[in-house]
Write a protein that binds this DNA or RNA. Structure first.
Lengths: 123, 123
DNA sequence: GACAAGTGATTACAGATGTAATCTAATATC
DNA sequence: GATATTAGATTACATCTGTAATCACTTGTC
């Protein structure tokens, strides 16, 4: 898997919106992000422009609206980010990572069963 | 849990060394990091100074050597980082996170069994 | 006491990031 | 065709981060 561009936390929020619903206009993304952030539209448009420059987003012009779409698959990004996190914080080891997550989160018996099923699915 | 200072990836490498063996002198940390990085001693000392200013490290002077020690417990940092990762990448959901990790990593049957035991330990 | 050596503090610089305004150009409306 | 409006590009600024040199001060040695 070739190198992904480095995407900051703020840029990730933008990407998440585009992954969820694309193609999307800037205004659409601005509206969506205004529900969860206090960013000004100009800020969001800066992040969009940076993501385009980084090769994470593409766009197609329609009239005077740009329709943005992802150039990185969400799955690819998520897997890369997960690998990076596991290596950086746990030295690549799954066991302490899972132990820490399990301690952090309030999990029900159903949750635990579901997680075990996920483990069992592993071939 | 009060706010932890934001620690960069490079600073995390320094912290890991101090967590592993402390108190530690700058030279000791420089030696240890020289095994895995190509940083100059001045670089490492900058990172040490920044960590002190951030409140992540403290020091005690002995002769002309500073003995650095952590002001943040590794466990606390690891838990906070894990929470942040889970929320940021998976919206707080354990199941897709575990599924992604399991797909990413080459796990043996023993590994899987051990991970299930970790889940079962959850009260 | 003087000088050398060693230690960290401060400074330096470039790029990244967070945040947002200003400018330019294109489209929509009249 | 002219003007208003809108959309993104560019610029702005402060802080963070990566990387490392220079400076200042303290300690060690003679």
């Amino acid at each position: 898997m070739k190198d992904l561009p480095k995407i900051s936390e703020s840029e990730q929020l933008v990407m998440k919106n585009v992954w969820t619903s694309n193609p999307a206009t800037a205004n659409h993304i601005v509206e969506a992000l205004s529900e969860t952030t206090t960013w000004k539209p100009k800020t969001i448009k800066t992040l969009l422009n940076r993501l385009v420059n980084k090769g994470a987003l593409g766009y197609k012009k329609s009239g005077r609206e740009y329709h943005y779409y992802p150039l990185i698959e969400e799955d690819v990004f998520v897997r890369a980010e997960s690998r990076s996190f596991l290596r950086r914080v746990f030295g690549g080891s799954m066991k302490p990572m899972l132990a820490t997550m399990v301690e952090n989160e309030d999990l029900s018996s159903e949750d635990i069963q579901e997680l075990k099923r996920i483990l069992e699915k592993k071939k």
